[in-house]
Structures are given as structure tokens and as C-alpha cells.
Amino acid sequence: MNKKRFPKAVLRTADEMREASAAPASAPSGNVIEMTPKSEATAHVTAQSGPSTDPATALRRRGAVAIVERYANYSAIGGAIPVPLANAAAITALLVRMVKSLSDLYGVPFERNRTRSVIIGLMGGALPTGFATIATSTIALFVPGVNVLGLAVSSVTSGAYARSIGQLFIEHFENGAALDLRSIIKR
């Protein structure tokens, strides 16, 4: 007769796996102009629950990665715009929209101007080669014969930087933090 009592060993069920796979990505919500996290308690819980143990967190992270991938593709297209500096502006606008989508997903209040500053700061400062590479490749557009190469380099680097900035924001939001330049750059 089994008299021992064990805690649960199987932490996920087959139904939960099916539901996690079938659930759509979170729908975007309205534009909230606030800079504080929803609550410290929420942030604490988010930080404690790892993505691998909590199906809801894993699902949310998967949605976030999908958003980043989508915008990385858009940015790659934006990077191929053959108008110097206009492409950099287009990419910045796309990245702001990406962060807004991520903010909606994580329930973090969003502010457009602050986000734009954070992104410009990241691309020009924390990621020094970001703007530099895009700028250099767009300058190459002026050189006859190198135009196509310049477009290709600009497109690839734009996609890559969108992806890396997106990942940075995912990690940031996963830990329950708000939009704050200093804490993002510290990462």
C-alpha cells in the first residue's frame, strides 16, 4: 500500500500544451500615456515565474518573439529604402511601433516620445554600430555601382538591429520593468 505522499512531478498536462499552441497572440490594446508599471506586485510575480515553468508566461514570450520577428522583417524592408536617412527614420518609426506592441502584450504603459528617445539612444549609443552601419550603407547609395550593395547591407543590418532591440525589450518586460532608458541600457 502506498503511504508516501509526493508532490506533483508532471507540471504540464496534454490539454495545456494544446491550448498553449492554439491560443492566438495577444490583441493590441489602446495607447496608454503613463510611465509606471501596472503594479509592483505584478512585476514581482513576473520576475519570479520563469518562462519555462509557467505556460502563460511561455505563451506570452512566444507572442513577443513573434512580434519582434514581424517587425525585424519590416525593418529589413525599411532598410532597403533607397533614400538616405529616410530609411533610418522609417526604421525608428517601426521600432517604436514594435515596442508599443510589446508594451501592450506585457501590459506596460507606453509613451511614444519616451520610447523614441530610448530607441534612438540604443541605436546611436548603447549599440554604437547600429546607426553607424545604417548611415554608412545609405551613404554608399551616393556612390555609383555600390548602390545595390549599400541597400543589401542596410536591409540586413536594419533587420538584425530590430531583432536585437526587440530581444532587449522582451527581457526587460519579462522582468516586470517599465520603459526606462537607463535600466534598458544597463542590460
Partner: peptide, 16 residues
């Protein structure tokens, strides 16, 4: 062993 029975029943219960 009790642990083997425990895990067998939990797997079945979870739908595996």
C-alpha cells in the same frame, strides 16, 4: 517502487 507508480499515474492523469 512508489515513485514509479506515482509518476505513471500522474502522466496518465495529465493525458499522456
Amino acid at each position: 517502487s512508489v515513485i514509479a507508480k506515482h509518476i505513471r499515474s500522474e502522466l496518465a492523469e495529465a493525458g499522456f
